[in-house]
């Protein structure tokens, strides 16, 4: 084992992890406010990926630039999904909502399969062919750009949650919905905005991931499972936990692929997941709610 390989896989793991983190944050915010585990979250990422793809192939739009188009659009779509679909189901209980989003996930993935076919597609960037090599470590350019943008978006989200009134309302609802109502928070509005936010984050992560991954309509299935691993690692409902969980999963997968076996790298994540679920259900940092 040499140090170069170790650092290399650590770095690429952390970069991929930052994107996992973004997907995880979207899921965890929604869970915090609404107690919904949104099984259709992976499909939102998938839609973002296809958005980037079609933006490039139809309008020659740079995938990273198309973020400015798809993120607001999916924010609106998320609000509409909550307003017209989920809101009527949520009072039916956690499990009904879980199954409802499972139905939504199947519907979206299979409509996409129908319209776009199951072909694997890739996005090639003119500036992505050669990796840059600081200190002898190869870093893929698309992944680096995605990492920087993910950092910007996550920081912006953090500032929004900590500094604005709406952000405070979201955090308050997440901590205790009844108390928030008593303090005059419009919980319905908070829920709609949060679902929009979660959806936009997922789609944005999809746009950023698109140049680095194969895209196909059922990719959401793979991502949602990773996403559960992340939010459970960090503690369901906790934003910093999801960020840490995402980076941790990225690093574990990357190191596991190098040092254990590339075929079982996904399995390592799941074992970690089961271990945390069983022994620390509030997450490794103990900040989530079990």
């Amino acid at each position: 084992m040499n140090i170069q390989t170790f650092v290399q896989s650590l770095v690429s793991g952390a970069l991929t992890g930052s994107l996992y983190a973004m997907i995880g944050v979207g899921l965890t915010v929604v869970f915090g406010v609404m107690r919904i585990i949104n099984l259709a979250h992976g499909e939102m990422v998938m839609l973002g990926m296809f958005g980037a793809y079609w933006g490039q192939s139809l309008w020659r739009l740079d995938p990273f630039l198309s973020l400015l188009l798809w993120a607001p659009l999916m924010f609106g779509a998320g609000m509409a999904i909550h307003r017209f679909l989920l809101r009527r189901v949520v009072p039916g209980g956690e499990l009904n909502t879980l199954l409802y989003t499972a139905g939504l996930s199947l519907l979206v993935a299979n409509v996409a399969l129908l319209v776009w076919s199951g072909d694997y597609r890739t996005i090639t960037l003119s500036y992505g062919a050669e990796p840059i090599r600081p200190l002898g470590i190869a870093i893929a350019v698309p992944l680096l750009v995605a990492f920087v943008l993910a950092l910007v978006i996550t920081t912006a989200l953090w500032t929004f949650l900590m500094r604005t009134d709406l952000g405070r309302a979201i955090r308050a609802t997440s901590q205790n919905a009844e108390a928030a109502i008593l303090m005059g928070v419009d919980v319905e509005r908070v829920a709609v905005v949060t679902f929009g936010l979660g959806t936009a984050l997922a789609a944005a992560a999809g746009v950023l991931l698109a140049p680095s991954l194969y895209l196909y309509p059922t990719v959401g299935e793979l991502l949602i499972v990773k996403c559960f691993v992340i939010v459970v690692l960090g503690g369901l409902g906790s934003v910093p936990g999801a960020i840490a969980g995402g980076v941790l999963l990225g690093v574990v997968e990357s190191l596991g692929a190098v040092y254990v076996s590339s075929t079982y790298k996904d399995g390592i994540g799941f074992l970690l997941f089961l271990g945390v679920l069983l022994y620390r259900p509030s997450g490794i940092f103990g900040v989530g709610r079990s």
């Binding site: 585990i37 956690e94 499990l95 879980l98 499972v225 559960f228 691993v229 459970v232 075929t263 079982y264 996904d266 399995g267 799941f270 074992l271 997941f273 089961l274 679920l277 069983l278 259900p281 079990s290």
Partner: peptide, 19 residues
């Protein structure tokens, strides 16, 4: 585990079996 946590755990077990 209970409720949604049980559901997620079974999902992970199934993925391990598939792998």
């Amino acid at each position: 585990l209970r409720g949604p946590y049980f559901s997620l755990a079974t999902l992970a077990v199934a993925e391990i079996v598939r792998l």
